[in-house]
């Protein structure tokens, strides 16, 4: 595994909300075309780290970073980062489904349109392809002009995945994508993640231990803003090196 070249690499990365620490001294490598899970207790900085990767945290005032966070070899917190290109290559799916209050079609076409695609027939192709990739096509193919808000929560989340895929990213960040969904919808999303990992690098934050075990290849365990242990999923769940990790994955965590 480790012979592969890392697509995301952080070295002593620290993130501060004003004077408050979000994460500190994170050093880890994430490998392409695989699923990496981040687990840890609430408030430990999982979202903070994930949201640093495509710099969506920039929306918050008074943030500071230290250390390096490389995506494809480029330090994203460099001054001369092209944010548009970064965010197109690093797609994101949020905890709560957040489709735009537009039609299903317009939601998926939003990214391609930003990249200058205007031709309707071409847009239609992309929309169809991405909806199929997100396993939603069959359910919505007859009502692409319906408002996205009229879909169910699970459908909305898959629509958000399709929307993220439509910009052709290499990396897909998912912040607890299933926490707002019921078990059936969760199952569908997990299947989808499994399918997508052949083409995309996926980083997923989850509170669900089984989910992490099921979908991911490697797992990182965060606690209190620090990376405690990062190894193959099998190792983390069967034979963790640290006591803290073991307590957490076996549910004995305070």
């Amino acid at each position: 595994m480790s012979d592969k070249k890392a697509i995301i690499k952080s070295e002593n990365f620290c993130f501060y909300y004003g004077s408050k620490i979000g994460v500190k001294n994170i050093s880890m490598e994430i490998y392409p075309k695989s699923v990496t899970a981040i687990i840890g207790p609430s408030g430990c900085g999982k979202s903070t780290f994930l949201r640093s990767i495509n710099r969506i945290n920039d929306l918050i005032a008074n943030i500071k970073t230290k250390g390096v966070l490389l995506v494809k070899g480029h330090n994203v917190y460099d001054k001369n980062t092209n944010l548009v290109n970064l965010r197109q290559q690093v797609g994101m799916v949020f905890q709560k489904p957040n489709p735009f209050p537009k039609s299903i079609f317009d939601n998926v076409a939003y990214g391609p349109r930003l990249q200058g695609v205007k031709k309707r027939s071409y847009l239609q192709q992309i929309v169809e392809e991405k909806l199929k990739a997100a396993a939603l096509w069959g359910e919505v193919k007859d009502e692409l002009n319906k408002s996205a808000l009229a879909l169910s929560g699970g459908q909305q989340q898959r629509l958000c995945i399709a929307r993220a895929l439509a910009t052709n990213p290499d990396i897909l960040l998912m912040d607890e994508p299933c926490s707002a969904l019921d078990p059936i919808a969760t199952g569908k999303i997990e299947d989808l993640i499994d399918k997508l990992q052949t083409d995309y690098t996926i980083v997923i934050v989850t509170h669900n231990m089984q989910q992490a075990a099921r979908v991911s290849e490697r797992t990182a365990f965060f606690c209190l803003g620090e990376l405690i242990e990062y190894d193959s999923t099998v190792k983390i769940f069967r034979n963790p090196a640290k006591k803290q990790t073991e307590d957490y994955v076996t549910g004995r965590f305070g």
């Binding site: 929306l59 548009v84 797609g91 949020f94 735009f100 930003l114």
Partner: peptide, 26 residues
């Protein structure tokens, strides 16, 4: 909702585009 803004920026839209095509309609 801030989530609209995050989604739009996450897709690589600029601030102006986000304002015109997401915030303003909403």
């Amino acid at each position: 909702p801030q989530s609209y803004v995050e989604a739009s920026l996450g897709l690589g839209a600029g601030k102006l585009t986000t304002f015109i095509s997401v915030i303003l309609p909403a």
